[in-house]
Protein backbone atom coordinates (compact mmCIF):
# COMPACT_ATOMS: atom_id res chain seq x y z
CA UNK A 1 0.00 0.00 0.00
CA UNK A 2 2.75 2.43 0.99
CA UNK A 3 4.68 1.58 -2.17
CA UNK A 4 1.58 2.25 -4.24
CA UNK A 5 1.09 5.60 -2.57
CA UNK A 6 4.73 6.45 -3.12
CA UNK A 7 4.57 5.68 -6.83
CA UNK A 8 1.23 7.45 -7.22
CA UNK A 9 2.53 10.51 -5.36
CA UNK A 10 5.71 10.64 -7.39
CA UNK A 11 3.79 10.19 -10.63
CA UNK A 12 1.45 13.01 -9.63
CA UNK A 13 4.31 15.38 -8.81
CA UNK A 14 6.13 14.40 -12.01
CA UNK A 15 3.09 15.10 -14.13
CA UNK A 16 2.60 18.44 -12.38
CA UNK A 17 6.24 19.45 -12.92
CA UNK A 18 6.10 18.39 -16.56
CA UNK A 19 2.96 20.45 -17.00
CA UNK A 20 4.69 23.49 -15.48
CA UNK A 21 7.74 23.02 -17.69
CA UNK A 22 5.82 22.46 -20.91
CA UNK A 23 3.49 25.39 -20.20
CA UNK A 24 6.45 27.69 -19.60
CA UNK A 25 8.13 26.44 -22.76
CA UNK A 26 5.01 27.04 -24.84
CA UNK A 27 4.33 30.39 -23.26
CA UNK A 28 7.72 31.92 -24.03
CA UNK A 29 7.47 32.23 -27.82
CA UNK A 30 3.87 33.31 -27.39
CA UNK A 31 4.90 36.13 -25.07
CA UNK A 32 7.73 37.14 -27.39
CA UNK A 33 5.26 37.40 -30.26
CA UNK A 34 2.85 39.45 -28.18
CA UNK A 35 5.61 41.76 -27.00
CA UNK A 36 6.71 42.27 -30.60
CA UNK A 37 3.11 43.01 -31.50
CA UNK A 38 2.90 45.54 -28.67
CA UNK A 39 5.90 47.32 -30.17
CA UNK A 40 4.22 47.18 -33.57
CA UNK A 41 0.97 48.68 -32.30
CA UNK A 42 2.78 51.35 -30.27
CA UNK A 43 4.95 52.39 -33.20
CA UNK A 44 1.97 52.45 -35.56
CA UNK A 45 0.23 54.84 -33.17
CA UNK A 46 3.34 56.98 -32.95
CA UNK A 47 4.25 56.80 -36.63
CA UNK A 48 1.01 58.14 -38.02
CA UNK A 49 0.04 57.80 -41.64
CA UNK A 50 2.14 55.55 -43.81
CA UNK A 51 1.85 52.29 -45.71
CA UNK A 52 -0.28 49.25 -44.87
CA UNK A 53 -1.12 48.08 -41.36
CA UNK A 54 1.23 45.64 -39.69
CA UNK A 55 -1.43 42.96 -39.97
CA UNK A 56 -1.78 43.41 -43.73
CA UNK A 57 1.98 43.60 -44.14
CA UNK A 58 2.38 40.44 -42.05
CA UNK A 59 -0.27 38.48 -43.96
CA UNK A 60 1.29 39.26 -47.32
CA UNK A 61 4.78 38.45 -46.03
CA UNK A 62 3.56 35.16 -44.57
CA UNK A 63 2.00 34.13 -47.87
CA UNK A 64 5.29 34.81 -49.62
CA UNK A 65 7.16 32.88 -46.92
CA UNK A 66 4.79 29.93 -47.37
CA UNK A 67 5.29 30.02 -51.15
CA UNK A 68 9.04 29.94 -50.59
CA UNK A 69 8.63 26.88 -48.37
CA UNK A 70 10.01 28.59 -45.28
CA UNK A 71 9.93 26.68 -42.02
CA UNK A 72 7.51 27.52 -39.21
CA UNK A 73 10.37 29.01 -37.17
CA UNK A 74 11.41 31.26 -40.07
CA UNK A 75 7.83 32.46 -40.53
CA UNK A 76 7.50 33.23 -36.83
CA UNK A 77 10.75 35.18 -37.02
CA UNK A 78 9.38 37.02 -40.06
CA UNK A 79 6.17 37.94 -38.20
CA UNK A 80 8.08 39.21 -35.16
CA UNK A 81 10.58 41.19 -37.22
CA UNK A 82 7.73 42.89 -39.08
CA UNK A 83 6.26 43.99 -35.76
CA UNK A 84 9.48 45.44 -34.33
CA UNK A 85 10.83 46.89 -37.58
CA UNK A 86 9.54 50.38 -36.79
CA UNK A 87 10.92 50.55 -33.25
CA UNK A 88 13.23 53.35 -34.42
CA UNK A 89 10.21 55.66 -34.50
CA UNK A 90 10.51 55.84 -30.70
CA UNK A 91 13.71 57.86 -31.07
CA UNK A 92 12.42 60.19 -33.80
CA UNK A 93 10.56 63.33 -32.73
CA UNK A 94 6.80 62.88 -33.01
CA UNK A 95 6.33 65.90 -35.28
CA UNK A 96 9.09 64.80 -37.66
CA UNK A 97 7.23 61.54 -38.25
CA UNK A 98 4.20 63.48 -39.43
CA UNK A 99 5.72 66.02 -41.78
CA UNK A 100 6.12 64.75 -45.36
CA UNK A 101 9.03 67.06 -46.11
CA UNK A 102 10.98 65.34 -43.32
CA UNK A 103 10.66 61.89 -44.88
CA UNK A 104 14.43 61.54 -44.85
CA UNK A 105 14.35 61.55 -41.08
CA UNK A 106 11.79 58.78 -41.22
CA UNK A 107 14.00 56.78 -43.55
CA UNK A 108 16.63 56.63 -40.83
CA UNK A 109 14.23 54.70 -38.60
CA UNK A 110 15.53 51.19 -39.52
CA UNK A 111 19.09 52.15 -38.68
CA UNK A 112 18.04 53.78 -35.39
CA UNK A 113 15.80 50.81 -34.69
CA UNK A 114 18.64 48.34 -35.27
CA UNK A 115 20.77 50.23 -32.71
CA UNK A 116 17.91 50.15 -30.24
CA UNK A 117 17.25 46.46 -30.74
CA UNK A 118 20.90 45.65 -30.15
CA UNK A 119 20.54 47.04 -26.63
CA UNK A 120 17.69 44.65 -25.85
CA UNK A 121 18.77 41.03 -25.39
CA UNK A 122 15.28 39.78 -26.07
CA UNK A 123 15.04 41.42 -29.49
CA UNK A 124 18.69 41.82 -30.47
CA UNK A 125 18.30 38.83 -32.83
CA UNK A 126 16.20 41.07 -35.09
CA UNK A 127 18.62 43.99 -35.31
CA UNK A 128 20.61 42.62 -38.27
CA UNK A 129 17.41 42.25 -40.28
CA UNK A 130 17.03 46.03 -40.26
CA UNK A 131 20.57 46.72 -41.55
CA UNK A 132 20.86 46.56 -45.36
CA UNK A 133 24.33 45.02 -45.23
CA UNK A 134 23.59 42.22 -42.76
CA UNK A 135 20.09 41.05 -43.35
CA UNK A 136 19.08 37.47 -44.00
CA UNK A 137 16.22 36.27 -46.21
CA UNK A 138 13.73 37.55 -43.62
CA UNK A 139 15.20 41.06 -43.70
CA UNK A 140 15.39 41.00 -47.49
CA UNK A 141 11.72 40.10 -47.83
CA UNK A 142 10.71 42.90 -45.46
CA UNK A 143 12.87 45.38 -47.37
CA UNK A 144 11.31 44.26 -50.65
CA UNK A 145 7.81 44.74 -49.29
CA UNK A 146 8.71 48.13 -47.81
CA UNK A 147 9.99 49.20 -51.21
CA UNK A 148 6.88 47.93 -52.94
CA UNK A 149 4.42 49.65 -50.59
CA UNK A 150 6.41 52.91 -50.56
CA UNK A 151 6.58 53.11 -54.34
CA UNK A 152 2.96 52.06 -54.76
CA UNK A 153 1.92 55.27 -53.02
CA UNK A 154 2.83 57.17 -56.20
CA UNK A 155 2.61 54.58 -58.98
CA UNK A 156 0.31 51.76 -60.14
CA UNK A 157 1.12 48.44 -58.52
CA UNK A 158 1.92 46.66 -61.79
CA UNK A 159 4.46 49.30 -62.73
CA UNK A 160 6.17 48.93 -59.40
CA UNK A 161 6.21 45.16 -59.68
CA UNK A 162 7.69 45.31 -63.18
CA UNK A 163 10.44 47.60 -61.87
CA UNK A 164 11.20 45.26 -59.00
CA UNK A 165 11.26 42.28 -61.35
CA UNK A 166 13.66 43.98 -63.71
CA UNK A 167 16.16 44.93 -61.02
CA UNK A 168 19.52 43.43 -61.74
CA UNK A 169 21.26 44.06 -58.42
CA UNK A 170 21.57 41.46 -55.67
CA UNK A 171 19.52 43.23 -53.01
CA UNK A 172 16.96 40.46 -53.05
CA UNK A 173 17.31 36.77 -53.63
CA UNK A 174 16.05 35.81 -57.10
CA UNK A 175 13.58 33.13 -55.97
CA UNK A 176 12.24 35.47 -53.32
CA UNK A 177 11.75 38.23 -55.88
CA UNK A 178 9.74 35.86 -58.09
CA UNK A 179 7.59 34.60 -55.20
CA UNK A 180 6.98 38.10 -53.89
CA UNK A 181 6.02 39.50 -57.26
CA UNK A 182 3.59 36.60 -57.75
CA UNK A 183 1.84 37.11 -54.41
CA UNK A 184 1.80 40.91 -54.70
CA UNK A 185 0.38 40.70 -58.22
CA UNK A 186 -2.46 38.48 -56.96
CA UNK A 187 -3.23 40.86 -54.11
CA UNK A 188 -2.59 44.32 -55.55
CA UNK A 189 -2.33 43.80 -59.32
CA UNK A 190 -5.31 46.00 -60.11
CA UNK A 191 -4.43 48.84 -57.74
CA UNK A 192 -3.67 52.14 -59.42
CA UNK A 193 -2.00 53.86 -56.52
CA UNK A 194 -2.39 53.08 -52.87
CA UNK A 195 -3.88 55.88 -50.79
CA UNK A 196 -2.27 56.53 -47.42
CA UNK A 197 -4.36 55.09 -44.62
CA UNK A 198 -4.37 55.34 -40.88
CA UNK A 199 -2.52 52.37 -39.39
CA UNK A 200 -4.55 52.18 -36.21
CA UNK A 201 -7.77 54.00 -35.52
Amino acid sequence: MTELLLVAGCAGITVFCLWVAVSARKRRPLMLGRAARAVGVAMSLRGGLVGPSNDEFGQIADRIGARLGWSEAQRVRLANTIQVRQIGFAAIPYQHLRQPHLHRVRERAPEIGADLLERLPIWSQFSDELRPTRRSEVGQLIALLEEFFYRMESAPAMDVLRQIQSQTDDRYDLAMREAAVGVLQESYGNRVARPKVALVD
Binding site: C10, A11, I13, T14, C17, L18, V20, A21, V22, A24, R25, R27, R28, M31
Partner: peptide, 17 residues
Protein backbone atom coordinates in the same frame (compact mmCIF):
# COMPACT_ATOMS: atom_id res chain seq x y z
CA UNK B 1 13.81 10.30 -9.76
CA UNK B 2 10.75 11.36 -11.77
CA UNK B 3 9.79 14.32 -9.57
CA UNK B 4 13.42 15.34 -9.10
CA UNK B 5 14.25 15.41 -12.83
CA UNK B 6 10.90 16.88 -13.86
CA UNK B 7 11.10 19.39 -10.99
CA UNK B 8 14.54 20.56 -12.06
CA UNK B 9 13.34 21.00 -15.64
CA UNK B 10 10.24 22.85 -14.46
CA UNK B 11 12.30 25.20 -12.32
CA UNK B 12 14.70 25.91 -15.19
CA UNK B 13 11.91 26.60 -17.69
CA UNK B 14 10.02 28.69 -15.20
CA UNK B 15 13.16 30.74 -14.46
CA UNK B 16 13.74 31.35 -18.17
CA UNK B 17 10.16 32.43 -18.56
Amino acid sequence: LGPIVAGAWAVREWRRQ
